[in-house]
């Protein structure tokens, strides 16, 4: 971490802590904001937070690791959320999962080698009427067929994005 990055981090944490310090049970909310800022919770930030809140680092890590939402690793450029909720499962989302894993050569919860995609499995995005559902970043693809997966993913590869620019 460069000195400049370090300063940004210290400022961010100081402002979060001053915003939340008077509210009880603030740790989870601070972690949410920290993750919004970085996309994950970097270890130096957790260490600094532990100092600022006078809370042991173990207490912070115990919370981060309990909740699925918090990440300790930087996310991929595009985040694929594949729904394995009941409605999607019944309509074949497990098949889509295998297809994506095969196409991108990536496991659940991991990032592709080029850092382009991260594959997350989620339990219900709350749009069961569209099952099976894949969400990439903020875009929701409904009623996806196995044969369409390749086409959807290819919209996100670097090459095409550059050509659009």
């Amino acid at each position: 971490m460069t000195q400049e990055e370090n300063k940004i981090m210290l400022d961010e944490i100081a402002s979060l802590v001053s915003k939340w310090k008077d509210k009880e049970g603030n740790l989870i909310m601070i972690l949410h904001e920290l993750q919004n800022f970085y996309g994950y919770v970097p270890r130096p930030a957790a260490l600094e937070l532990s100092r600022a809140l006078h809370t042991p680092l173990a207490r912070i890590y115990e919370v981060i690791t309990f909740y699925n939402f918090f990440k300790l690793e930087p996310p991929g450029k595009h985040i694929i959320s594949l729904c394995l909720g009941t409605a999607c499962y019944l309509k074949g989302s497990a098949i889509l999962l295998n297809e994506i894993k095969g196409l991108l050569n990536v496991e659940e919860g991991a990032t592709t080698k080029d850092g382009l995609f991260q594959l997350d499995v989620v339990r219900c995005l709350g749009c069961c009427g569209l099952a099976p559902v894949i969400k990439i970043d903020d875009k929701v693809y409904g009623k996806v067929q196995k044969s369409e997966v390749m086409g959807i993913l290819s919209q996100y590869n670097n090459h095409q994005e550059e050509s659009v620019k």
């Binding site: 009880e24 049970g25 603030n26 740790l27 989870i28 909310m29 972690l31 949410h32 919370v63 309990f66 909740y67 699925n68 939402f69 918090f70 339990r123």
Partner: peptide
């Protein structure tokens, strides 16, 4: 208060623990 992806937090005592930041 935001949840953070834990189904068990729908249970009332777990939900309380989560609001308390644990």
């Amino acid at each position: 208060r935001l949840g953070a992806g834990a189904f068990v937090c729908g249970e009332e005592t777990a939900l309380i623990a989560s609001i308390e930041g644990r």
